[in-house]
Design a protein around this nucleic acid. Structure first.
Ligand SMILES: [Mn+2]
Ligand SMILES: [Mn+2]
Ligand SMILES: [Zn+2]
Ligand SMILES: [Zn+2]
Lengths: 159, 159
DNA sequence: TTGGTAATGAAAACCATTTTCAATAAGGAG
DNA sequence: CTCCTTATTGAAAATGGTTTTCATTACCAA
């Protein structure tokens, strides 16, 4: 079930926060843009339609959205934190990425089948018991080389 | 097959680097200490036995060990990069963690059975084909609440 | 409409990491 | 072993993403 702006507006109010103009603009950018944006990328995009925005507000709004479980925060090792709006509740508990070691491109990988999810659930159950650890969600990162970078390496070898 | 200091000394030389005193001390700390140390934690431990060490050298040595695939680098979101010596080659291609959302404790989870590894391998194969992405390794992070923090929440509720 | 206060933006501070640069020491050639 | 080249080192300064400070603004409950 995909969720539009309204839903997030209600979530913010329900979280005890004011629904301000900067927050609405930030949510719009998050819901329309590609995933895994950095704070500065969000700042620049909001700035196009709302020049008064401050980078500080972007950071503060993201912090609020993360604590309110409306946004996920990632660190893929390129020196900046990245953010993704949670449009689908399932993405919260089970979220996976392919990460290219060469160009650092991130591919969202939402194609886990029911079987695969069940399997991870069973591993979770086992680990929960073994470590007395209450597991709420999991993420897998698959590191490697993307299609484009593979080709470039091949081209380089031919010269 | 666990690997002692000698092995890493040879790896460093084979990687075309000089085997210096600071590097040896850093390797000793990494192989003896608990896992997932930050650069500053490593610096302090080395400083005990080798006071001349500089924090800069710690960063540079870790960088070298990471590019030489002798150390793994992680970012668990606490504002500092963390490092772990690769003692066992298997840990490189398949490495998993339990991460407490409350106290940020990291538990290494090395108990994946052959079945579980085979299963992830089959998922990898599928994803490789679908995204034309050459997968070299994977890591899973299980987020939740650790035993200790669960107890503290319970105690808090009783008051 | 209004008052209390949460939220904002600019500037400064913070702090992990990187860069600079002169001094040092690893290790191959002889 | 000694010498010489140059990779490596450590202190200090710079960098850059993020956070804090503080005076001003604007939500929104009453
Ligand atoms: Mn994602
Ligand atoms: Mn680990
Ligand atoms: Zn790539
Ligand atoms: Zn905990």
């Amino acid at each position: 079930m995909p969720r539009g702006p309204h839903w997030f507006h209600r979530r913010i109010r329900g979280y005890g926060c004011r629904l301000t103009l900067p927050r609405q603009r930030i949510l719009e950018v998050l819901s329309r843009s590609s995933k895994h944006l950095s704070a500065e990328e969000i700042y620049h995009r909001v700035h196009q339609v709302y020049p008064a925005i401050g980078l500080t507000t972007v950071y503060r709004t993201l912090e609020m959205l993360v604590s309110g479980a409306m946004v996920m925060r990632f660190d893929f090792g390129d020196g900046r934190t990245r953010y993704e709006l949670i449009k689908d509740q399932g993405a919260l508990t089970s979220h996976h990425h392919l990460i290219c070691r060469v160009c650092l491109k991130i591919i969202d990988c939402e194609e886990f089948t029911g079987d695969e999810r069940d399997y991870l659930k069973s591993i979770e159950k086992k680990l929960s018991k073994k470590y007395k650890f209450e597991i709420r969600e999991h993420q897998t990162r698959f590191y490697g080389v993307c299609d484009k970078c593979k080709k470039e390496v091949t081209d380089y070898a031919k010269r």
